[in-house]
Amino acid sequence: MKIFIREAMVSDSEILTQISFAAKRHWNYPDQYFDSWKEELTITPAYIKNNRVYVAEANERIVGYFSLVEIKNDFWAGKVFVSKGFWLEHIFILPEHIGKSIGTKLVAVLKLKCSEININKVKIFSDPNAKGFYDKLGACYLGESPSSIEGRTVSLYELDI
């Protein structure tokens, strides 16, 4: 399967939102989690316009994407501390394409795009189910952080570019 990676267009927002929810649902999270994640997983045309978003296509169909965002100032989101810098905010693959190296290819493009604009580190809040992926990529595990879901944590990583 040949994968083509391109910059997202604002018209991709609906399919990217569908991929976000499908990828999260793959891990059988309770329905109430999705109420908390609704805003976070919804990709709007403005989000695409204001951030660096790239999609992976297979057979002319979008099967995954990533987004890189710049946080200009430290802030607290509830109990979650978000430091300024560049963040891999989203990387989602349709469940039927997980394990086919699409995520690895997306991260290779992320690294290329970051190096082009002199970004040397990217921070990541990782879903617990994605820890192995980031470990395999050689990202540095920094510890656990509270999640937006009460009583749950996410892993904090830093990826050298």
Rank of each mutant, 00 (worst) to 15 (best):
Y134T: 03
E14A: 02
I119H: 13
T104R: 12
T153I: 06
V63S: 03
L159P: 00
D31L: 06
S83E: 15
G99T: 06
A58G: 12
N120S: 15
A46P: 02
F86D: 13
F75M: 11
S145N: 04
K123S: 14
N50S: 10
G151C: 07
I119D: 10
K49R: 11
E60H: 09
E14L: 06
N118L: 13
A139Y: 05
V154Q: 08
N73S: 13
E96P: 03
G78H: 05
D74I: 11
H97F: 14
E40A: 13
R6T: 09
F92R: 07
S67F: 05
Y65Q: 05
Y141D: 01
A46L: 14
S83K: 06
N50Y: 06
I3G: 05
M9L: 14
D127Y: 00
Q32V: 06
Y134K: 01
I161A: 11
A139W: 01
G78F: 01
I98R: 01
N51I: 05
S36N: 10
F4Q: 14
S148I: 15
E89L: 14
I3Q: 05
W37I: 01
T153S: 08
V122I: 15
N129M: 03
Q18P: 00
I48P: 04
F86S: 09
Y54S: 07
K38M: 14
G99Q: 04
